[in-house]
Amino acid sequence: MYAFELERPTTLADAIKALGGEEAQPLSGGQTLIPTLKQRLAMPSTLVSLTGIDELKGIKNEGGTLTIGGATCHADVAKDGSYPALSDLAGHIGDPHVRNRGTIGGSLANNDPSACYPAAALASGATIVTNNREIAADNYFTGLFETALDEGEIITAVKFPIPEKAAYVKFEQPASRFALVGVFVTKGANGVRVAVTGASEGGVFRWTEAEEALSSNFAPSALEGLSVPADGMIGDLHGTPEYRAHLVGVITKRAVMKAG
């Protein structure tokens, strides 16, 4: 790692202030960022740790909306249970130790194309709350490791409307155990939403054809004959674009079945 200053503010206001500095970068759970720093692929002058800020942590279930503080770790979401599909997802990110450190805000801010949380946020029609504004998930994910966040803007909370039915199924890349393809489906006030992670070169996306088919018949059979094009899917040593495209269909069916 290159040398940097590490600041540990205890209030959001202090964190925002610290992030105003030149080459300052937020540090949440660090489960992705620290390995990146070890490879010297990032060179921040200051890291501002968000995990010491109590107001960024915690989970509230009010009026059918689950609000999760940005610095809440995966293990806490897994334990919560008020949005079972989301807790199930959180309980299978990385491994137990990673789940004790990694946070929802960190995951969504990083927007790794193989991460789990982006699928949950997009399929749930979640709202990303930052220190400045609220961003609908549909407008938040803008590409590979790209989001609508501005420099110095941090995720303070994520609001999930709890759907009537939902499930997440992840097909793991054998080495990293990230999603080779992960599909989150929901059925609720927003209709049916299907979000796919791991597969596309553009990052997480909604599979609208599947959503339409499932809107009239929320059952795996509704997806018969539907497929996503291999064009634009990720191809690497763990799977060709064709394989990933195929998996999107299979895993979506399984997610629908799991959602019941």
Binding site: L6, G30, Q31, I34, T51, A75, V98, N100, R101
Partner: peptide, 22 residues
Amino acid sequence: CGACTVHVNGASVKSCNMFAME
């Protein structure tokens, strides 16, 4: 690899993936 796993305030963490200051 998890060889560095320790408990911090009762929770298991990978100590090579956390800063001492934290």
